[in-house]
Measured scan of single mutants.
Amino acid sequence: KFGRVHERAEGPAKILAIGTATPFHWVDQSSYPDYYFRVTNSDHLVDLKEKFRRICNRTMISKRHMFLTEEILQKNPNLCSHNEPSFDVRQDILVSEIPKLGKEAVLMAIDEWAQPKSKITHLVFCTRSGVDMPGADYQLIKLLGLSPSVQRVMMYQQGCFAGGTMLRLAKDLAENNKGARVLVVCAESSAIGFRGPSEDHPDNLIAQALFGDGAAALIIGSDPKMGLERPIFEIVTTAQTFVPNGDCHLALHLREMGLTFHCTKDVPPTIAKNVESCLIKAFEPLGISDWNSIFWILHPGGNAIVDQVESTLGLEPNKLQATRNILREYGNLSSACVLFILDEIRKKSGREGLKTSGDGLDLGVLLSFGPGLTIETVVLR
C-alpha cells in the first residue's frame, strides 16, 4: 500500500561536471621552513628547523595554497603556538571561509554543467574544518541561492578518505532518486591544524609540511539529458573497508589547540600492503587483474605512500603521474585531493585527444585512504 515514493533511475550514476578552487595566497615549499619557523617564533630550535627542512624536501611538493597569511597569523598569535588554546579563533575563521571556498568550486562546476542551478536536488558536503550547526551545507545553500528544499547531508571530521566516500553516497542518491542531481562538495583548510613546532611531537612537522587548502565540487546524476549534459565518468562500483587496528597508525583529534595529527612510519607500507586486496575485490568480477590496464586516481597521502603503492603493485611510472602532479602543485588537500586528481586526469586526456576521459582507457580506480586506515575503492568508467 505504501510502496516506494521515489522512482529509481534507469542507469548508473555519472559525473557530469567538476570544479575546483583554492585560496589566492600560496607558499613556496622550498622556502617554507624559514617562513614557518619565523612566523611561529621558533628560529631558536635550530636542529628541529633543519629536520623540518629535510621533511619538506622529501615531500616532492612545490607549492601549497593556504588561507592563513602572515597578517592573519600576526593578529592571532595563539595559532602560532604549539599548545595555546586557539580553537575559537580557528572556528571564527573557518565557519565562514569553508563555505565560501566551496562556493567557488561549485560555481566552476555549474559553469561546466551549463544547467540551471535550480535542477540541483541534493547536496553532500564534506570538511574536517569549521564544525558548526547549522553547518557548512546550510551556509553554502544560502551563498548559492539554492532552494531550501535541496536535500542535504553534512559530513564533518572524515579525513583524507572522504573523497571516495562522497562518490559512494552520491551514487546511491542519484541511482535511487530518478532525476536527482547531486552536488558533491569537499572543502578543506590546513588552518584547522596549523600550529608551531615542538621537539616532543615530530608528527606535527609532517602535517605542517604536507597539507594545503582547496575545494572540489562535482555534479552527479543518472540518465543524463542527451544534448544537454556531457558525462565525464561513470561510477561503476564503490566499497569501503578499514585495516584492523589501523587507528594506531593514523589518527587526528580535535583539541583546544586545533586538530592534532598522529602518524607513524608504518602508514605507507601498511596501505601499500592492503591496497591489492581492495583492487581484487573490485575488479575480479570485471575480469581485470592487470593493474597497468586501468587508469589511476590515488590519494597522495605523501610521497612515500605513492612510491610504495607503485612499487608493491608493479605500476608503470606514468600510472600515478596525475597523483604526483597534484601533490606537487597543491600538497595533500585531504578529502578534496582525489577529486582534484580526477579533474587533472580528464583534462590531460582532453588535451592529448585521447579516446576516453581516463587516459584513453575504459576502466579505472579511485583509491582514497585516511584516519583509521580507512580505504575507499571506486571503480570508474
Rank of each mutant, 00 (worst) to 15 (best):
G358T: 04
F369D: 15
A13H: 00
G314A: 04
K355E: 01
L228P: 10
L361G: 09
H65E: 11
A114E: 00
Y138G: 02
V243L: 12
P300C: 14
S335I: 05
M60V: 09
R346P: 00
I110A: 05
T356F: 08
P285N: 15
G258C: 09
N41M: 03
E329Q: 15
H44F: 01
Y36F: 03
E70H: 01
H122I: 02
M60G: 15
Y330W: 02
V267C: 12
R90W: 10
R255Y: 06
A336G: 05
P134F: 11
V379R: 14
D137A: 13
A17G: 02
G258P: 12
L144V: 00
S293E: 12
V378R: 15
H299Q: 13
D34V: 06
Q29R: 03
P23N: 14
P285L: 08
I280H: 02
H122P: 06
R346W: 01
H6S: 10
Y138A: 14
H25Q: 06
G246V: 02
A239Q: 05
N292S: 09
S42W: 02
N325M: 14
T69K: 10
Q115M: 09
K100R: 06
G364K: 03
E234C: 13
C263I: 06
H25M: 04
T40F: 00
D132T: 02
N245Q: 01
N245L: 12
K355V: 04
L279V: 07
K51R: 11
F233K: 03
D266H: 05
N245I: 08
R90M: 08
P285F: 06
D28E: 04
L259V: 02
D343L: 00
D343A: 02
V338E: 13
R328G: 07
G353W: 09
T40I: 11
D290L: 02
T59V: 14
F369Y: 13
T264F: 07
I288T: 09
P33W: 12
Q74K: 10
I341A: 12
P134D: 08
P285W: 14
E112G: 06
E71K: 14
V46E: 11
R381K: 13
Y35S: 07
K51Q: 12
L315K: 10
T260D: 15
K319A: 12
S86T: 12
Y138Q: 13
L279C: 01
L45G: 09
Q240L: 09
I297P: 11
S30K: 10
T323H: 01
E352Q: 00
K49Y: 00
M108Q: 13
R351A: 00
V131N: 15
L250H: 15
K355Q: 04
L342A: 08
F261P: 14
W291K: 02
Y35D: 01
G19Y: 00
C263R: 14
P371Q: 14
S357E: 04
V46F: 05
L101S: 05
F295L: 09
I141E: 05
G19P: 06
I297N: 07
H262A: 12
P85Q: 15
K14W: 11
Y35H: 06
S149G: 14
S357Q: 04
R381P: 12
V106G: 14
I232Q: 11
P285A: 01
K51P: 05
G258S: 05
D247S: 10
E376I: 00
P134L: 07
F67S: 07
K348A: 00
K281I: 00
D132N: 07
S311W: 09
V46R: 09
N274L: 12
D92P: 02
G246T: 11
N274S: 13
T40S: 06
I235F: 01
L298M: 14
V5M: 13
A114S: 14
G287V: 02
S335L: 01
M108G: 02
N318L: 04
I61T: 10
M108W: 01
S293K: 03
D28Q: 00
E70L: 00
K14N: 12
C263L: 13
L254F: 10
K75G: 10
P269R: 12
T356N: 11
F242R: 10
K49T: 00
G145D: 11
I55S: 01
E329R: 05
Y32V: 03
L107A: 12
V39I: 07
L250C: 09
H44R: 12
C278V: 11
P244C: 14
G370W: 11
E276K: 11
E376V: 01
E229G: 04
G102N: 00
L254K: 14
G3R: 10
I294W: 04
A282G: 02
T22W: 07
L279W: 03
M60E: 01
E344G: 02
H253I: 11
G360L: 02
F37Q: 05
D359R: 03
Q240F: 02
M133G: 10
L146G: 03
L16E: 05
D137M: 13
L366Y: 06
P99C: 15
G360D: 08
A336C: 14
A21L: 05
L373F: 05
T121I: 10
R38V: 04
A9Q: 01
D266V: 07
C80W: 11
